[in-house]
Every structure is written in C-alpha cells, then in structure tokens.
Simulated scan of single mutants.
Amino acid sequence: MEHKKVTIYDLAREAGVSTATVSRVIAGNYPVSQGTREKVQQIIDHYNYHPNALARTLSNKKSKLIGFITPAITNPFFSQVFVEVEKSALEKGYSVLLGNSLNDREIEARYIRMLLEQQAEGIILLGGLINDSNPDLERVQELIAIQKRTKLVMINGSVEGMGNCSISTDEAAGMRLIIDHLVRQGHRKIGLIGGVKGITTTDIKVSTFKAELKKHQLIFRKSWQCYSEYSIEGGEDGFKQLMSLNKEVPTALIGINDMVGVGMIKASKRYPNQHFAFVGFDDTSLAQTSSPELTSVRHPYEELGKRAIEMMEANAKAQHVMLAPSLVVKESTVKSINRV
C-alpha cells in the first residue's frame, strides 16, 4: 500500500480485523484486547495514518467547527469582532470559518450550505439580515430551518421569534454617553450623520439621539440629522449635505460609526474657518489613526467574542445578553473649538 492512499479499510484488511475495531483503537475509549490493540497500532504507526476529520465528525457528532458570517469584513467593526470571536474559539479548541457574504444573499446561502455539510457545531451571524428592522419573512423562515440543524448565535442583532442566543452592545447607552459628553463640553447644537433608516442599529441611535436632545432641552433639527450610509465616503457626503442645507450648522457632529466620523473630519478640512467637535461609534483602529484622533464609543470587543463562544457551547436555546459600552475621549472633542 502507498502511504498517501491508505484508508481505514486497508488497515483493517492488513490487521485482519473489522473497521470498527480500527476505529475503537484510534478513539482509544472503547474496549479492545491488548494484543489486537498493539497489532492495529503498529500498522497505524507504520503508515503514519491520520483519520479523516469529517469521518470523525460523523462518528462523534463533534466537528469543533464554527462558522462566522458577516456582510462586509472590510468594515473595521466587523473585523474587530471577528478577531475576538476567533481568539475565544481557538482557546476552546474550535476552528472558525469566515464567510464574507459581500452583502450578497446567494454567497451567504453558499457559506451556510458549506457549514452544514461540514457538520459545523454552530454559526455566528453579525450584520446583514439580523439588523433589519423589518426582515424579509422568507429569509427568517430559512434561518429557522437552519437553526433546526445547528446552533445560531447573533451578535449586535436579533430576529423576533427566532428563540436563539444573541449578544449585543447597548448602543442606546453609547449614544447617551456621547450626548452627555458633548453637553458637558458646552455644545448646544449637535448633529448626527450616517446610517440607513430601517437598520436596527441606526434606528436605535437616531431615536436615542432625539430623546437625549429633548432630555437636555436641546432642539432637534431634521436637517442636522442626515442618513448617508456607513462609509468614509458616506461621511463626506453627509457633511456636504448638512453644510449645503443650513446657514446655521452644529458645533458638534456625531458619526453613526467611525468610518462616517473620519469622512466628516476629512470633508470639514474644506471649511478652514469653521470648527467642529466630532464623535464616532465603535472605537476601531480608524478612530485611533484619524487626525485628529476621533472620540468614539467603544464596544467591549473581548467580552463580545468570549460570550458568543460561551453561548455556542451552552445548552440554553434562547438567551440574550446586553453589554455596556464606554466612551473613549480623544482629540476630536477636547481641542479648543471655535463655536459657530
């Protein structure tokens, strides 16, 4: 026999035993006579045989594989969460397969099929469908069907009626931290840029923003709240839109995420005579490398990753955990500001 082609059937034939006996010797936790065990083990060692991982999965129902599906790994928030999930998974002996769906439903479905075929012990979802305020019912039914075959854990999102585990950062609390900070800095004119209406994370931030302005007896101006996606380009476009629509502009601007915050800072450089305080959301590497460094709400990334894996291992079918964020204050709100 050639070493590269040896199979469990070849080993059984040479040892004169059944494939079940060879499997018991490999597993090491089933009774096999000492003589037979030694004979089979010698043949295994001779051919340097390693059992097929999928075959082991089928026999013991444990693949130690977890899927992680997100629509845009280029989003630094998504990538930072993935890093922490992977760290925690590796510590527990799992492998993580990353599925970057590129916001494409077919690509997402392909990854899910692949994970189910490989007997993945669970799938973690971040972004996409689980952030829709009114998710497509057909896709919800697809998720329910998937959940009957493997465990689903959702990060920073949920789907009503799913009854699965989810973990989120309290983004409403994050927005409250921002408004409190800006008010203490003396700002009375505050705007919010970015996001897409109908996405839960955006809807939560916008509704909390309005409520906090009211609580602090500040005026909400519709033209100071602009939807403009989640990218750096979206931040630039939203800032330009605000400047074109208003004779009077805010002294402080909140970006729906760090990418939008950086885009606003970039666009503001075209207005050297007007100065603003800027705040982002997520405290990713962008917030730390922008100029000025961007004050931002930070997710408890390590805890998100750790708890997501714990949920994957837990027997509980439905559990939701909400984690507290923090505000990391940097240059963009503490420098001297000319209030217009």
Results as ranks from 00 to 15, higher is better:
V334Q: 12
G67P: 01
H50F: 14
G255I: 02
L102K: 11
Y9D: 11
N103L: 05
L327C: 08
V96N: 05
L54V: 13
E160W: 02
S326P: 04
L98F: 00
K210F: 01
L116I: 14
A318Y: 11
L11I: 15
Q141Y: 07
T284D: 09
H275P: 04
Q185V: 04
R56L: 11
A172G: 11
K210S: 00
Q274C: 02
R37G: 04
K247V: 04
K210Q: 11
D283W: 02
E236F: 01
M114Q: 13
T201C: 06
D170K: 04
H46W: 10
I232W: 03
S291I: 10
I199T: 09
E313L: 14
A109S: 12
E117R: 15
I146Q: 10
I146C: 06
K197M: 00
E160K: 10
R184S: 13
E2M: 13
R221N: 12
T202A: 07
T202C: 11
N156Y: 10
R139D: 15
I204N: 02
V25Y: 01
Q225S: 10
E2F: 12
D282Y: 01
V22Y: 05
A109E: 13
D203T: 09
R105E: 15
I155S: 03
L182W: 05
A72R: 10
H46R: 15
N273I: 01
A120I: 00
V81L: 06
D136T: 06
Y271N: 09
L115H: 07
I254P: 03
G234A: 08
A316H: 13
L102V: 01
E212W: 01
V159D: 00
T201W: 03
E86T: 09
